[in-house]
Structures are given as structure tokens and as C-alpha cells.
């Protein structure tokens, strides 16, 4: 098992493996998105209070979950890279960041769209939305630091430190924002979700989250592949691949 792990943790063996996995995960993502959207838009019942506008949560909630998961996974890869000094984990961390940032943005965007019909305003200083916004800032900082440093090895190591510091802070930020929200209760309406959600609604959300996972894996693998080509461009095997494609 460990040997297998080591075998695939070298860029040279990982590159073709990733190439084979991308279509699989892409296909899974498409199928799951189709199922999830069908469940969410056709099967799940209309909300008695909010009508059909609530249906955006199938994207909103799944995207918000993903944005948080991805940050933790990213920091995990960053830590692995720091401890064992493996190139591939650095690339994983770096490739996850743009997707995580995108999901954070999507969560905010759909949150605003959901807010307009529900509370009559695009933005409320709700605890969840606010911490999502700060999470987006954390992603932006990570991406900015990574791209500001020219040397790829230094960029990877520096941003790994930032990701680990960030992930320790994420729960503190989350809870501090919640407490801040309770202190200033009068200022905003907290958009609590209906306490009892129909089982189909939960299932639809879960399927959408899985679909986003599959999409994330496919995109990240593709990004890692191109980064491998870029960073290993001086090696023999990459030259062979490039020569074959010409």
C-alpha cells in the first residue's frame, strides 16, 4: 500500500494516471449534477413560505460546503508537502485554491440572489455569509502570494505556511463572526433555514455536493497535469510527451 502510494506520488507516474482518471471523474460529475438538479427542481416539494426561489440552495449550500472542505483539504496537502517535502502535494494545494475560491464566490453570489426575494435585500450581514466572504479573502491571499513569488518551490512552501495558518484560523473566524452576529442581533435578520427539511431536499443537496466533489477532482487533476508539464519541462520524459504531441 505504502509502496503504491510512493509510486504514484512521483510526478512521472502520476501524470498518466491523472490523465486516465480525469474522464472518469468528469463523467461522474455530469451524471451526478443531472440527478441532483432533477431531484432539486422536479422531485423536491415547493417550500410553503418561500415558494420556488428557495431551490437555489441546491447550488448555494453545496457550493458553501465545498468552499470550506476544499480549504481544509488544501491545507492538508500543504502540510503534507511541508512535512515530507513532496512536489506533488504542493501542486495539489495550489491547484485546489482557484476551485475553492470559485465555490466561495458562487456561494456568495447565489446567497445574494436568494436573499433578494426572501429578505428583500441582496446582502445581509449574516454570520454565514460574512464568514464565507472572509473565506474568499483567505483564498485570494493564498493565490496572490503564490503568484507573487517567482520561484515555484519557494512559492509552494510559502503558501503552504499560509494555508496551515489559515486553516487554524478558519474555525476561530467562523465562531467569532457568529458571536459578533449575536451581539448585533438587531442589525440583521438571521436567515435560518426551515428547521424540518424534507428528506428529498437533503438528498438532493447531498447529491449536488458529491457532484461538485467529482467536478473538483477532475479540474484539479487537469491543473496538476499542466503544472507537472511546466515544472518538469527540463526532464527527459516530459520532452518525450511534448515531442509526441507535436
Amino acid at each position: 500500500m505504502t509502496n503504491l502510494w510512493l509510486y504514484f506520488s512521483s510526478p512521472k507516474t502520476f501524470y498518466p494516471l491523472a490523465g486516465k482518471l480525469i474522464p472518469v471523474f468528469s463523467l461522474l460529475a455530469i451524471i451526478l449534477i443531472a440527478i441532483g438538479l432533477y431531484m432539486g427542481f422536479a422531485v423536491a416539494p415547493t417550500d410553503y413560505k418561500q415558494g420556488d426561489s428557495y431551490r437555489i440552495i441546491y447550488i448555494h449550500v453545496a457550493a458553501a460546503w465545498m468552499s470550506m472542505f476544499i480549504y481544509v483539504v488544501m491545507a492538508g496537502w500543504a502540510a503534507v508537502g511541508m512535512i515530507w517535502n513532496t512536489k506533488l502535494s504542493d501542486m495539489m494545494a495550489g491547484s485546489l485554491a482557484p476551485t475553492g475560491a470559485m465555490f466561495a464566490f458562487v456561494a456568495l453570489w447565489t446567497g445574494a440572489l436568494w436573499g433578494k426575494p426572501t429578505w428583500g435585500t441582496y446582502w445581509v450581514w449574516d454570520a454565514r455569509l460574512t464568514s464565507e466572504l472572509i473565506l474568499l479573502f483567505l483564498y485570494v491571499g493564498f493565490i496572490a502570494l503564490r503568484s507573487a513569488i517567482d520561484d515555484p518551490r519557494r512559492a509552494a512552501r510559502a503558501s503552504a505556511v499560509l494555508a496551515v495558518v489559515g486553516v487554524i484560523n478558519v474555525p476561530i473566524i467562523y465562531f467569532s463572526v457568529r458571536w459578533w452576529n449575536t451581539l448585533h442581533q438587531g442589525a440583521s435578520v438571521s436567515p435560518e433555514m426551515a428547521p424540518k427539511m424534507a428528506a428529498t431536499m437533503l438528498w438532493a443537496m447531498f447529491v449536488m455536493a458529491m457532484a461538485f466533489w467529482m467536478y473538483t477532482i477532475a479540474v484539479v487533476l487537469a491543473r496538476v497535469r499542466s503544472e507537472i508539464l511546466e515544472r518538469e519541462s527540463s526532464t527527459e520524459w516530459v520532452r518525450e510527451i511534448l515531442a509526441r504531441q507535436r
Binding site: D150, D151, P152, R153, R231, S233, S234
Partner: peptide
């Protein structure tokens, strides 16, 4: 020793 892409 490597500096960027170059192996010194």
C-alpha cells in the same frame, strides 16, 4: 542544487 528549473 536547483535554482528554479535549472539544475546547477
Amino acid at each position: 542544487c536547483r535554482r528554479g528549473d535549472a539544475c546547477l
